[in-house]
């Protein structure tokens, strides 16, 4: 039998490590004292949860683009499955990031207003980003031949991945925004307590780990679907 697509032993070991890691991050996120800042108060802890959603989406975009690149290089359909599932789970984390940002801003800077959705450039650019990935999923559903679909989708996905850093990081920094590092705002590194960074960076790793667990599960399901129905799309 050929080398299995997912190395189960390695998967289970990594999965258990990630679960333990995230549990420690959650404990630290609530137990460590943080500086009390006006407006933010305890919601500053959202740094550990809201921001890693975006790092996770960005990581998913990289994984997806990497496998799309390999589709074009090798024509391997397993790479196509990986590219699609990474993009799907990544988009899911993007939606979580949007929703958590809406809740966070409503009860801090927008208290006393009816604002849930403001002209924040990051909100708009990220929505645009999610639409670009929505088009990727729609494009796939429009093509029936798996080989042709894998190549056309890979080309589009590489385009989508290229726009991501500009929409998420470059454009929002040129405009006024609630987010650190935007026009006129101090950068993240200038305003964040060192203790909070001690939790923040591990939290990013933890959430990317959760992405990896779900992504791997979905790849396995997709492979099963292919074996039973000769069609891996899901």
């Amino acid at each position: 039998m050929a080398e299995p697509v997912v190395n189960l032993k390695r998967y289970l070991l990594t999965r258990n490590l990630i679960i333990g890691w995230v549990t420690c991050v959650l404990l630290a996120a609530f137990l460590l004292n943080i500086p009390k800042i006006n407006i933010l108060e305890h919601t500053a802890r959202n740094l550990y949860f809201h921001v890693p959603m975006w790092f996770t989406m960005m990581a998913a975009v990289f994984v997806s683009a990497y496998h799309s690149f390999k589709v074009l290089k090798t024509g391997d359909l397993v790479e196509d499955i990986r590219a699609l599932q990474a993009a799907r789970v990544g988009a899911f984390f993007g939606v979580l990031g949007l929703l958590t940002g809406i809740v966070w801003s409503k009860f801090t800077w927008y208290v006393g207003t009816d604002i849930w959705w403001n002209m924040d450039p990051r909100q708009y650019m990220v929505s645009l980003q999610l639409l670009i990935y929505g088009a990727y999923f729609v494009l796939r559903s429009a093509l029936d031949d798996p080989r042709k679909r894998s190549r056309i989708a890979a080309v589009y996905n590489l385009f989508a991945a290229t726009t991501t850093p500009f929409l998420l990081y470059v454009i929002p920094r040129q405009m006024e925004s609630l987010h650190p590092g935007a026009e006129g705002n101090p950068a993240f590194s200038e305003i964040t307590d060192p203790l909070m960074r001690l939790v923040f960076y591990p939290a990013i790793i933890g959430f990317i780990g959760i992405f990896w667990i779900v992504y791997t599960q979905r790849v396995r399901i997709s492979l099963l679907k292919y074996r039973v129905t000769q069609d891996s799309e899901m």
């Binding site: 189960l8 289970l12 999965r15 679960i19 667990i213 779900v214 599960q217 396995r220 399901i221 099963l224 074996r227 039973v228």
Partner: peptide, 15 residues
């Protein structure tokens, strides 16, 4: 997540 993995393994075996 753990139960999903277990079920997935069962289905993989039978397939």
């Amino acid at each position: 997540l753990l139960r999903n993995d277990k079920r997935l393994r069962d289905v993989e075996r039978s397939v």
